[in-house]
């Protein structure tokens, strides 16, 4: 995951709720790809067409607030988003993301400084965010050890399978 080419940024503000990420009328399916087709349908209709693998989402405070729908991180992950960087995350969204092996980084500094015009490389393991244009490096809150285990395993399902298998 390290040393990838710099990712394009999708910039959002504070309190982005899960109804914005995936409106409830699309919740009659559970498949990531189908959900991705409607991601941000009401506020950024271009997102589902233009988001590509390796893109990065940067947002303000309380990202993912509202409903517990796991369809929200599923839709973002299936849209190709590599990581979300935000000032803070709503708690259910936070758990859901790590449970599906989708990493989140908390950094007020990066969330405020980065714009849609920037391109950044993100090292999930170290949490280092580097801006391509000027080489600026932003620090993040380290991902707690337990959550790192989940991401490393690829999510809660493979983590539990590993545990149950006793390996």
């Amino acid at each position: 995951m390290t040393g990838d080419k710099p990712g394009k940024i999708w910039k959002f503000g504070d309190d982005v709720d899960t109804d914005l990420i995936i409106p409830a009328r699309y919740l009659n399916v559970s498949d990531g790809k189908e959900l991705a087709a409607h991601c941000f349908a009401d506020v950024r209709p271009e997102f589902s067409r233009e988001a590509t693998v390796g893109d990065i989402l940067v947002a303000g405070k309380n990202f993912g607030c509202g409903s517990s729908r796991e369809h929200a991180p599923l839709a973002l992950k299936a849209s190709g988003i590599k990581v979300i960087i935000a000032e803070s995350f709503a708690r259910i969204f936070y758990r859901n993301s790590f449970n599906i092996g989708f990493p989140l980084l908390e950094s007020s500094e990066a969330a405020r400084a980065l714009t849609a015009a920037d391109r950044v490389t993100v090292d999930i393991a170290t949490g280092e965010i580097k801006r391509e244009s000027d080489g600026a490096v932003f620090s993040t809150h380290p991902i707690p050890a337990f959550m790192r285990e989940l991401v490393d395993a690829g999510g809660l399902v493979p983590y539990l399978r590993k545990k149950r298998g006793g390996t």
Binding site: S68, E70, I92, R95, N96, N99, I100, L156, L160
Partner: peptide, 24 residues
């Protein structure tokens, strides 16, 4: 379901989670 917190009215610890958590 995020509104699972409702049962706190009865003096329970009650919290909303996502589907993967619930599946586990």
């Amino acid at each position: 379901d995020s509104h699972t917190c409702t049962y706190g009215a009865l003096g329970a610890f009650s919290s909303g989670v996502g589907s993967t958590d619930l599946g586990a």
